[in-house]
Amino acid sequence: MDLIAEITIAFCLVVSGIFGLVGSFGLIRLDQPMQRLHAPTKATTLGVGGALVASMLWFAVFGEGFSFHELLITLFLFLTAPVTAFFIAKAHLHTSVDRAELPPTGTAHDWSVFEDPGDPELPGEPRR
């Protein structure tokens, strides 16, 4: 039983190490900024997930019982990683991509809206 647990933990650790390395290496090596966004946000999240699963198994089998801390951290990271990726992508699009460079959307509307937003004039402060 201990041997199976140790093999599983070692497998999780190796997988997490490979994913973390690929994510961090892709951040350095990829060309376009949007490609660079892909590598760390997905691969590194999976790497941390593997490390957390390994830690959870370790403390459940050899430590002082099952603990919920890893599950909390995993949940938090998996919830926040897409949000941060979306924010960075949006900032990049708004700051350094020209409107004319964007590919056509295939619909009658512009990017990032599903339907016609209507009159863009809002009361109060002018939008930046």
């Binding site: 973390g20 760390p40 590194t44 941390v48 490390a51 957390l52 890893e70 951290i73 990683a81």
Partner: peptide
């Protein structure tokens, strides 16, 4: 994120 993995 890597620092979190190292801490764990």
């Amino acid at each position: 994120i890597n620092a979190i993995a190292l801490l764990i």
